[in-house]
Design a protein around this nucleic acid. Structure first.
Lengths: 130, 130
DNA sequence: GTACGTGCAAATGATTTGCGTTAAG
DNA sequence: CTTAACGCAAATCATTTGCACGTAC
């Protein structure tokens, strides 16, 4: 028999931890968070599950400055990213998504199945400090 | 005295190697390429210079799937990225850039100084091999 | 009962750092 | 000369993997 997905405690708690997060936690952050509920969980398990969950469409992975971060928001959306601290703010806009997809369709005969626009700037916090 | 930039052989050759590349080489690729001209160059030097050059606006860094890649194209532009092999195609469009910037200005009072849209799909090569 | 998942520790891969030496200006 | 940059090896950090054991179903 093959591919029987098990809903283990670890998996469920990781999903639950991510559920309403909007701050795109790192692996480290998720590990620490889930550890409160499941003190014996290993970081490898967290890595394995995050990979599994994103490959199977339960969550989405974003890579900022070379490190992986995860979000539960599956709807197409865009990001505003602070160039200093790496903070990410989600930004949903069907108008922008559609415009981009239509635009590229006109320009090239490409077969695109996802778009995301990243806006870069400096957040209020970081602007204060210098 | 402080901050006197030296135009060393290594630095010049790295810049020169990147000059007309449109394939967004990785550190490894740049290292191998430059090694042909300067066989004694070390990988640390390549890393140091790529960091220096991108921090000082000579080149741009892109991070795809967690690994750093570099491009000489400093003009604002967008990317079409193959989800399978990671191939990146540049895609310049002032129209899209301007639309995005205008759009976000309307939505939020944000102070944005850069945009880039990433389109995801599967390239012809990868499409063939299922 | 039987895979699939877990935990641990070791392995890998990318990138950084410390430091004595070299070379650009 | 003086100091930034180099080369090398060791260190660090994120992520992956091998394997014996545990557990969801």
């Amino acid at each position: 028999m093959k591919n029987k997905i098990k809903y283990t405690n670890q998996r469920v708690e990781i999903l639950d931890f991510l559920k309403h997060k909007t701050n795109h936690p790192t692996v480290e952050g998720i590990y620490k968070g889930v550890k409160k509920k499941l003190p014996r969980i290993s970081k490898a398990t967290v890595y394995q599950n995050l990979k599994f969950l994103s490959e199977n469409g339960f969550i989405k992975e974003v890579n900022i400055k070379g490190i992986s971060r995860f979000e539960p928001n599956l709807k197409p959306h865009h990001h505003i990213i602070c160039k200093k601290c790496g903070k990410i703010i989600d930004f949903e806009s069907k108008q922008l998504t559609n415009f981009s997809l239509e635009h590229i369709k006109k320009i090239k005969g490409f077969n695109i199945d996802g778009v995301e626009t990243n806006f870069y700037g400096v957040c209020k916090n970081c602007k204060g400090g210098k």
